[in-house]
Every structure is written in structure tokens, then in C-alpha cells.
Design a binder for these strands. Structure first.
Length: 851
RNA sequence: GGGGCUAUAGCUCAGUCGGCUAGAGCGCAGCAUUCACAUUGCUGAGGUCCAUGGUUCGAGCCCAUGUAGCCCCACCA
């Protein structure tokens, strides 16, 4: 089969992926050291975005590279039910039909969302295939798969038995629009302008009053104390007295607590234990009553005077301030900037509300994780993220794992109808009530936080505890994910991994940054700056997208999506394609070719280049420096192979060597351009038994360094000649080259690549001397151009002088000579000798033309 | 309030152990054109490595301070 003139990815990509699947190319090899990685499961309901394109590129490059060095690679794909996220998406669908989640039972809602996600699954898997991800599909895992649910239950039960789970009425972050609680980390804080009101609370005994400062007057109806600082002399005498809470007939105590900041506001704080996290702590310390005045619907409750009941928080605030003002109790209002928590989906202000929830006592889990981090047993890229994670774990609060949504794993806990404190663990979650010991228990309607189950991902996907995969591939070699989920996900995987398996869950964590638009702004639908990876593939091909994403990429930094980089990738693919076409034109049968012999200087030079490349490539790939590895490969293929070696080949072709080089280079390129490399491999029918994707790195024969270096001199000469010809504006020039440097074949290369009229061997110099090369040679240029030549000569003389001065200054510095490594000093010395020689030649040359 | 990141060519970014003339891609200027490839080739211009101070024989890199932009965490009633 012949290669077409230009690479058209759309003609090949889907066939190539199908071929890989048919041949089970991504099935882990029987032999070889294990290397494992798991896709951080994208939301099963959605389309992949640019962040996924980057993540899959990085992961797949790692996987393919590791296969090429003989590892047994297990690369596991998966999808996340993404509880709350997905329910929100589904609710929007319902909304379009004029329905809401309240129209259905929890079971029905679950089933509908399940079907909805199931319908989208093909779409999702197709996109992963289009990205070329070399995942092993039979190991595909979904976060609601039986085994995953099983593990979530086992984990919950183990924690229950270890007394790490407790149920408590705590303040939770509650979104009154979505009707569910969130973990601390899910709340989005924003700086906002608010008002700080000063409100006078009269003392019950009529002996005066105390003024408190608050941004939330509506919660005063739930106040159960006023707090001042114990050392605050202003209030010393009234601590222990009570105040009559305005708008109510309750008397509440004035207490002393050093939580209070004397310098803020009036130094007196109203304490509302049921609606503020700090007040909650104060309330606990002082054993105050908890009065809930805001309900889960975001409206004032029955605990407030009738005229305020049912008002929203905002309405209540207005009404209360109005009434206080009328009573003369509102004695000040100043603008105040503070940060307010919002629901990250709907922006509703998060209310801290008292709610019974399941919590994980996190300290015992965090401590071993911190210890592992400190030991450095996990390699972080970038390293700085390790410290950040450590700090996060040191201050982490207990983890609320209940969510009040339908889409998720039901919590396997039941409550005694008679005794609310009697909770039992039971997995019969398909039943609303169960009977145990003649007592009726009612199922907790809540589901687990998504992170609770997805944090078991590293071992759950490996069939913990009995699976062979677990035994062979745990801990994972690599966890590649976005740095935005370092805290919510990576931290929890680490804690759970240690807790359940007793081992770290992964050896290396690679964190990529956010893919922004070209101006560095976050991509979002509302800004209209979203680029869809699938349309990029349509336009430029999958490999081009991949190369565009990883070139210049480093871990931990955001990176803009730049189309020019994708185009650069496309051009590279085209270059490699055309190299293959050139080689194809010289080789009849790739499988029955004679062994490559090394003949010309160019042959030795390219072989030496390849072996250097191979060494650099392996060391960079091993340390996850993909961008640099690719850059080296890119320049070898484009500059060395195409621009020099192939050009030289046109003078004296060595087809077997060209074929061997092409083959070798395709193996190195395939992690970066898998579709292209495989297409060439298949089309040229290289090693027909195996696809490229299971081919290991190829070591070529060694080169003669002396001959290779000879070609370097030829290269320098050609560059100098080109540059000189251009500078003086000559055409059709003859080059004379001294006999000892000359071989007929190199002369032909020089002639061709410098576009000379001819190259002739000579004993004596004729014409102008070519500088910047160690080969003695002369260009026979037209006398009329001598002035131009002298000008370029002067420029060169000036440059050389600068160089000599710099080297001399350095060598005159006694400290340098004494303290710098001898190797370096010697290098400087020989550089100086060289430069001086060059100067001498240049001056002589100038002298020749002076008259 | 605590912690962190970033600042290098017109643009987007690399730069590992500090090593001497700081790189890439794109863009720009000029030249080339039936040749594997115009998705091309060749030649070239373009930098106070944010600022100041320090350490060092030597600093883009290490230390200190500052400036600008960004992020994370946590509490501000």
C-alpha cells in the first residue's frame, strides 16, 4: 500500500483504534514489571473538555512509553456517577419538561438518572477512543458498579466498627435551593459587601444595655447569649447578668469567652449557636440552647414571632432591621466587606444549619497520611503540592459524608423508629423499613458524598482485596489528575488507601493545571470561550491535539489552549508522514531488507544522533518530562533526520538504514502521535506480526565517532557557506576545498545543500576564505561583491574580538582560575586559543583585500 | 489572617546539579520554488531573564526585601 501525499487523520483514526482493540494491544503484557494507572473518572453524563484532553494525553503518553520499555501496563478507564453534579444536570433536563425532582420518588429519580447516564455512556466512551487513550476496556469501572458499592459499604462498616463514624447534629453547609449539605471543601467563598449593624440589647434588670455588632440581624431571634472577652474592662461588671432579647421575651446571659475579639465592632457578640460555626463552638462550651430560626427551605421557622414566620432570610433581615430601628435599638450601620459561602452550582448563599449527618472522624485517617507525606514516600510533580497537601491535612475538619440527594450510593444505616439514637448498620437499602429484633428500623434517606466512594478508586479498580490485579498492580505507579482536586480527591485517596490497604495508593502524583482560553481565562459557557476537543480533532486530528496540549506543558501550571500549538503538532505529523513517504520510495519491501550498513559520514552522524536522542528521551520520559522529551524528538526528526540526513541521502542513499531509522523513530514518536505512527506502520507493513503499539524501543548500531564528527564539520561548513553567500549576495558560486578535507561524496553533499555551482578539490586557496569552519575552503565570488564581503568580515572580526575579551577577562580572574572546576578552566583556555586563531585568520583575510 | 504560585523574545512557554555567547514554537524581515513535504526549505532580526540588595570565581536559577498578577486554605461577628 502506498502512503497518500498528505496525512489525513480522519481517514485512519477510527480504523486504527478498532485495530488496537481487535488485537487487544492494550491488554497488560504477561511479562514485565507492572506499571499501573487509572483514569480519574470523568462524569459519566457529560462530554469531555480540554482538561480531559490534556489529562488523557499525559496519561496515555506515560502508558504507551512504559509499554515501549517492556513494562506490563494496566491502564484502567472509568466513569464517575458524580452524585450532585449529575443530579443537577438531570434536573435541568427535567426543568425543560416542566418537571422537578419533587415530582418523583427517590427510587424513580434514581432510575431515571441511571438511564440518562446509561444513554450517554457510548458518547463518553467514543470520545475517549477518539483521544486515542490506550486503556484496557475490559477493566472499565463505574463508580456505581456493584463492586464499588460493596467496597464503600465495607469501608463504612469498618469505620463504624473502628468508631470513626459518628452521627451528630452539627452545623452543615446547606444549600437551601438544592436541599443538600456540602463538605467544607465544596463551598465557594466570595468577598461581598454587607452591612454591619449595631444593635442595642437592654439589660433585663434595666440598669443599662449592651450593643452588639452583626451582619446577620435576622439570626438574632435565635440568639442564646451575648459574649464578651473575659479581659474586657468595659463589660467586666455585667458578665453574668442577662439581657432581654429584643423582639422576643427571652432573657439570655452575657458570657465571657476569649473567642471574642475586643477590637472588632463593639467587642460584644451575639451568639446564635444554631446558625454560625463559631457560635456553635461557643454554644457547646457554655452549654447554651440551640434555637433553629432558619429552616431547610431557607425561611424563618416557627421558633420566631409569628409576624416573621415564613419570610426568607433577606426579607426577615429587612423586617427585623426596620422594627429595631423603629424601637430605637438599631444604633449604627456601617458597610462591611466579608466573605460569604455560596453553592458552587447555583450560587445560593450557603446557610450553616443544624442537621443530623454522618461524619468521619478524620484525624486518625489524616495522621498516617501526613506521616507518609513527610517521609516522602510519594513522588509529587510538582513537589510543592506535597507541602500544600500536608498543610491541608493538618487542619482538616471532620468529613460530612451524607448528601440529601437521590443520585448516589444509599447509606446502609437504619434508625429505630422508637429510639432515634439507635442506629444500626444494614445493607438492605432497597427497603425503606426493616425489622430487627422485633423493632422497626427506618432507612436513612441520604446517600454518600461522591468522594467517599471515589476515594477508593486506586484499589477498588484493581479488584481489592482478592483480585490478581490488586496483588500485581497496587500501589498504582501513577496518579495523574488536575491540581484542583488535590484536596478533595487526592487527599482522600491517600487517607482511605492507607486506612484500607495499609499501603500508599500511588507512587507518583502528577498534577496538571487548568486549561484556560488563549487569554488565560477559565473556559466557561457564559463567557463563550469554550473549545471542544472533539472539534479540534475533527479539524486537525487527534495526534495534533495531543501534541498541542503537551508541548511546553509543565505540571502544576495553568496553560492556555493555543491553536497554533495544535497546528504545530499537525505540521510535525505531516513532516513525519513525508519522511515515511521518502523512505517508502527507496525501499521495496520493508520486511525483506538487507541489514543496514554504515557507509557515509552522514550515516555515522545520524546513528550517533539517534543514540544520543534515545538516551535523552528515556531519561526525560522516565522523569515525566514529556514536553522536553518531545522537543528533543521533534528536533531530531525534523532537523537531523529530515533536513540533514534525508537531504544528504539524496546524494548517496542508504535505503536499509533509512528504513531502520524510520522504524526506530516511529517507536519513539508513537506515545505522542499514536494514530499517525501506527498508520505509517500498518501502511508500510512494518513487522506485520505486531502493531507498533506493542513494539519496544529500538537500539540501532553504534557509530564511528570520528566519522560522525566529520559530518558535523561538513554541516558547519554548509551553514557558513550558505550564510556567506547570502550575506554577500552571490549566486552560482564555485567552492574550492583543500584536498585533505575532501571526499567526492561529501563534496556532492556540500554542493547540493549549499546550492553551489560546483565544489572542486584543490591544494591552494582561491577566492575568499570561508570562516566559522575548521575546513579550509574558499568561495570564488565575483569581484564586484568584495565590498559586501569586507563588511561581513568586519562584523565577524568585531564579534571575535568581543569573544576574546570576554575569555581573557575570565582567565585573568585569579579566583576563577583557582576555584572553578579545572575542566571548565581548560575549556575556557582552549576556547581562547580557538578564538585567537580565528582572529588571526580573519585579519589575514582582511589584509589580502585591503589593497 | 495563613500558605502557595507566576513574572524569561512581539505572543505562548521551556530552562534538571548555579558554569560562562539564555532556548523552542508561533509571529516578523529577506531569499528560494517542478525535488518526500508550502502543513516546505534557507538566511536573519529580536532579550536590562520584574526591581533592588546579598551570597558566590560565576546567578535566569540560591537568599532577603519590594512591585505586579493569580490561586488555595481558614476564621472576621
Amino acid at each position: 500500500m502506498k502512503l497518500a501525499k498528505a496525512y489525513q487523520p480522519e481517514l485512519y483514526e477510527s480504523d486504527i483504534y478498532a485495530l488496537w482493540e481487535k488485537l487487544e494491544s492494550f491488554k497488560p503484557a504477561q511479562h514485565g514489571d507492572p506499571y499501573s494507572l487509572v483514569v480519574p473518572p470523568p462524569n459519566a453524563n457529560g462530554n469531555l473538555h480540554m482538561g480531559h484532553a490534556l489529562a488523557f494525553a499525559l496519561q496515555d503518553i506515560a502508558a504507551r512509553y512504559q509499554r515501549s520499555i517492556g513494562k506490563s501496563v494496566l491502564f484502567i478507564p472509568g466513569a464517575d456517577h458524580a452524585g450532585f453534579e449529575t443530579q443537577v444536570v438531570f434536573e435541568r433536563e427535567l426543568e425543560k419538561k416542566g418537571k422537578s425532582r419533587f415530582d418523583y420518588s427517590r427510587e424513580s429519580l434514581y432510575q431515571q438518572i441511571y438511564d440518562f447516564v446509561d444513554n450517554n455512556r457510548d458518547n463518553f466512551a467514543t470520545q475517549i477512543r477518539r483521544l486515542g487513550a490506550s486503556v484496557y476496556w475490559p477493566s472499565y469501572t463505574f463508580t456505581l458498579d456493584k463492586e464499588i458499592v460493596r467496597l464503600a459499604y465495607d469501608t463504612f462498616r469498618k469505620m463504624w466498627q473502628d468508631s470513626l463514624i459518628y452521627r451528630g447534629e452539627r452545623l452543615v453547609n446547606f444549600c437551601t435551593f438544592h436541599g443538600t449539605a456540602f463538605a467544607d471543601i465544596e463551598v465557594e467563598y466570595r468577598e461581598e459587601k454587607g452591612t454591619l449593624w449595631q444593635i442595642k440589647y437592654p439589660l433585663t434588670d434595666g440598669s443599662g444595655s449592651i450593643v452588639v455588632a452583626t451582619t446577620r440581624p435576622e439570626t438574632m431571634l435565635g440568639d442564646t447569649a451575648v459574649a464578651v472577652h473575659p479581659q474586657d474592662s468595659r463589660y467586666k461588671d455585667i458578665v453574668g447578668k442577662t439581657v432581654r432579647l429584643p423582639l422576643t421575651n427571652r432573657d439570655i446571659p452575657i458570657i465571657a469567652d476569649d473567642y471574642v475579639d475586643r477590637n472588632f465592632g463593639t467587642g460584644a457578640v451575639k451568639i446564635t449557636p444554631a446558625h454560625d460555626i463559631n457560635d456553635y463552638d461557643v454554644g457547646k462550651r457554655h452549654d447554651l440552647p440551640f434555637i433553629t430560626v432558619i429552616g431547610f427551605d431557607g425561611r424563618l421557622t416557627h421558633a420566631v414571632p409569628e409576624r416573621f414566620r415564613g419570610l426568607t432570610v433577606v426579607e426577615g433581615r429587612e423586617a427585623i432591621v426596620k422594627e429595631l430601628t423603629k424601637l430605637g435599638l438599631q444604633v449604627g450601620a456601617t458597610e462591611h466587606i466579608h466573605s460569604v459561602g455560596h453553592c458552587y452550582k447555583c450560587s445560593t448563599v450557603i446557610e450553616p444549619l443544624l442537621k443530623e449527618q454522618w461524619f468521619v472522624n478524620i484525624k486518625p485517617l489524616a495522621e498516617p497520611a501526613i506521616a507518609e507525606l513527610k517521609k516522602g514516600s510519594i513522588n509529587f510533580l510538582p513537589l510543592v503540592k506535597r507541602k500544600q497537601l500536608e498543610r491541608y491535612l493538618e487542619t482538616i475538619r471532620d468529613w460530612n459524608i451524607s448528601r440529601q440527594i437521590a443520585w448516589g450510593i444509599p447509606i446502609p444505616a437504619f434508625q429505630n423508629e422508637e429510639d432515634p439514637d439507635d442506629w444500626i448498620y444494614d445493607e438492605r437499602v432497597d427497603q425503606e423499613t426493616i425489622t430487627v429484633n422485633h423493632k422497626i428500623y427506618r432507612r436513612d434517606p441520604d446517600v454518600f458524598d461522591t468522594w467517599f466512594s471515589s476515594s477508593s478508586w486506586p484499589y477498588a479498580t484493581l479488584d481489592y482485596p482478592d483480585g490478581n490485579n490488586y496483588k500485581r498492580y497496587y500501589p498504582l505507579s501513577l496518579m495523574e489528575t488536575g491540581f484542583d482536586i488535590l484536596m478533595p480527591w487526592v487527599s482522600r485517596m491517600l487517607m482511605l488507601g492507607l486506612y484500607i490497604t495499609g499501603q500508599i495508593p500511588f507512587r507518583t502524583v502528577y498534577l496538571h493545571g487548568l486549561v484556560t482560553d488563549k487569554h488565560g481565562l477559565k473556559m466557561s459557557k457564559s463567557k463563550g470561550n469554550v473549545v471542544n476537543p472533539m472539534s479540534v480533532i475533527d479539524k486537525f486530528g487527534s495526534d495534533s491535539l495531543r501534541i498541542g496540549m503537551i508541548s511546553g506543558q509543565t505540571p502544576g501550571n495553568n496553560q492556555p489552549y493555543i491553536e497554533a500549538k495544535v497546528i504545530g503538532g499537525r505540521n510535525f505529523c505531516n513532516k513525519l508522514w513525508n519522511i515515511a513517504r521518502f523512505v517508502e520510495s527507496l525501499v521495496d519491501d520493508f520486511n525483506n531488507r538487507t541489514e543496514a550498513k554504515t557507509e557515509t559520514d552522514a550515516d555515522h552522524w545520524i546513528l550517533l544522533g539517534y543514540s544520543k536522542l534515545l538516551e535523552t528521551y528515556v531519561s526525560l520520559m522516565d522523569s515525566y518530562r514529556f514536553s522536553e522529551a518531545f522537543e528533543n524528538l521533534y528536533h531530531f526528526i525534523w532537523d537531523d533526520f529530515a533536513d540533514w540526513y534525508i537531504e544528504a541521502s539524496k546524494v548517496s542513499p542508504n535505503p536499509p538504514l533509512l528504513a531502520a531509522l524510520l522504524e526506530a523513530v516511529l517507536v519513539l514518536a508513537h506515545p505522542f502521535a499514536p494514530f499517525l505512527a501506527e498508520t505509517i506502520w500498518q501502511t508500510l507493513e512494518l513487522s506485520p506480526e505486531s502493531v507498533l503499539s506493542s513494539r519496544q524501543l529500538i537500539r540501532l548500531k553504534t557509530a564511528d565517532n570520528h566519522k560522525a564528527n566529520n559530518f558535523n564539520h561538513i554541516k558547519d561548513l554548509i551553514i557558513s557557506v550558505r550564510s556567506t553567500i547570502k550575506a554577500v549576495g552571490a549566486k552560482d558560486v564555485v567552492l574550492y576545498i583543500r584536498n585533505i578535507h575532501s571526499t567526492p561524496e561529501n563534496n556532492d553533499v556540500i554542493k547540493r545543500l549549499s546550492q553551489l555551482k560546483s565544489v572542486e578539490s584543490t591544494e591552494e586557496g582561491r577566492g575568499i576564505a570561508v570562516s566559522g569552519t575548521s575546513i579550509d575552503c574558499w568561495l570564488d565570488i565575483d569581484q564586484k561583491l568584495i565590498d559586501n564581503y569586507l563588511r561581513t568580515l568586519d562584523i565577524k572580526i568585531a564579534e571575535t574580538r568581543t569573544n576574546i575579551d570576554r575569555l581573557q577577562t575570565r582567565l585573568n580572574n585569579k579566583n576563577y582560575v583557582d576555584r572553578a572546576p579545572a575542566e571548565l578552566v581548560n575549556q575556557s583556555r582552549s576556547q581562547l586559543v580557538e578564538a585567537e586563531q580565528e582572529m588571526e585568520n580573519l585579519l589575514l583575510e582582511k589584509q589580502r583585500y585591503k589593497s
